[in-house]
């Protein structure tokens, strides 16, 4: 176990290095001039030259990358071109919003997945259900987000669909507003934060839950034809006991692997959802950085997401080995 974690920690470092290197490499092949982008379109050439010196843009790419690595390991991610703030500070400012959204949507996804599994197991009209699942799995995040916003925010006005809070004056200590509200003794803030969280979290959770449950259904279908299920039937176990004790656990491996794959697609979803619902998190920060080709900011957010991704895949692998004793870490 310790060995496994050590191995994966090395893996994390390698992935982050590869990611940053790819972005660095791309930067060197593009014709556009980051110095000009930083200095602004109307800056005189002397200013551009100063910027170039200041950011070390005259050095060869390998040297620049070396400098970059040294700076990053000291915790310095550079300065955002757009906000003119150190990227590290920006990340810290926007990270809590995104983490809060991810956590809430994970909880929501678990609940959704669980109820969908119960629905599946109840055996209700399996053919109809199957096509409903295909339709849900085919809903692009753009449509889902826009639909949720239109129906529950504009039309029914049940839930807010923009920003994190209606209280403009509130300043939290941890950045997780649901908790901050409780800490500050203002439960109405917490409730409002939860209300704001609902729609974006739903938009993130639904596709994820559907993908996992579809893959579980498929793998459960295969598992229920295995000889050991026949053995269990031959031993006179009830069908419910067979599914719960023999089926689900053996079928768990595929949806867990699916979770790992889905997470990669989910980062795109996060960006879309934060944009549609005006959620001031890392996703929105990154989307806005795209427009200005804000390299340090893009790189910084990528690093954070890369770390989250690797941590999640480690958790998935551990879960897989717990579910199936044949998989060793």
């Amino acid at each position: 176990m310790a060995l496994y974690l050590a191995k994966r920690a090395c893996g994390l470092a390698i992935v982050l290095m590869v990611m940053s290197f790819i972005v660095f490499l791309l930067q060197s092949v593009i014709p556009s001039d980051p110095a000009r982008a930083m200095a602004g379109p109307y800056a005189p050439s002397s200013t551009i030259e100063t910027v170039r010196e200041e950011f070390g843009l005259n050095d060869p790419i390998a040297v620049q990358y070396g400098h970059f690595l040294v700076r990053v390991s000291a915790g310095d991610l550079g300065k955002s071109v757009r906000t003119r703030q150190p990227v590290g500070d920006d990340l810290l400012r926007y990270l809590p919003a995104t983490l809060e959204l991810i956590l809430v949507s994970t909880i929501l996804a678990m609940g959704l997945a669980f109820s969908l599994i119960l629905l599946l197991l109840s055996g209700a009209r399996s053919q109809v259900l199957r096509h409903v699942f295909i339709a849900l799995g085919s809903t692009p995040i753009i449509l889902l987000a826009v639909l949720l916003a239109y129906v529950f925010w504009f039309s029914l006005a049940w839930l807010p669909g923009s920003g994190r809070l209606q209280f403009r004056d509130f300043v939290g200590t941890t950045g997780f507003y649901v908790i901050d509200g409780l800490l500050a003794g203002r439960p109405n803030v917490s409730v409002d934060a939860l209300a704001h969280l609902t729609l974006p979290a739903m938009a993130l959770a639904l596709p994820f839950a559907v993908a996992v449950v579809r893959s579980l259904a498929g793998s459960l279908h295969d598992v229920m034809r295995q000889p050991y299920i026949r053995t269990a039937r031959g031993n006179g176990l009830s069908e419910a006991a067979i599914v719960l004790r023999h089926g689900i656990r053996n079928a768990a491996s595929a949806p867990l692997a699916m979770t790992g794959l889905q997470i990669r697609l989910l980062f795109g979803n996060l960006l879309v959802v934060e944009t549609v619902f005006g959620w001031p998190g890392l996703g929105l920060y990154m989307t806005q950085s795209f427009a200005t080709a804000d390299l340090p900011a893009i790189l910084g957010v990528s690093m954070v997401f890369g770390t989250i991704y690797i941590l999640v895949s480690i958790a998935v692998e551990i879960a897989q080995s717990l579910a199936d004793p044949r998989i060793e870490l």
Binding site: V15, V18, V23, G268, S289, S302, F305, G306, Y309
Partner: peptide, 21 residues
């Protein structure tokens, strides 16, 4: 393995942002 362990959508997004839309 290396490709599969990378958060590919993320890198693709970043790459396009750097290369130009």
């Amino acid at each position: 393995d290396l490709f599969l362990v990378l958060p590919s959508t993320m890198i693709a997004l970043a790459a396009v942002a750097v290369l130009g839309p």
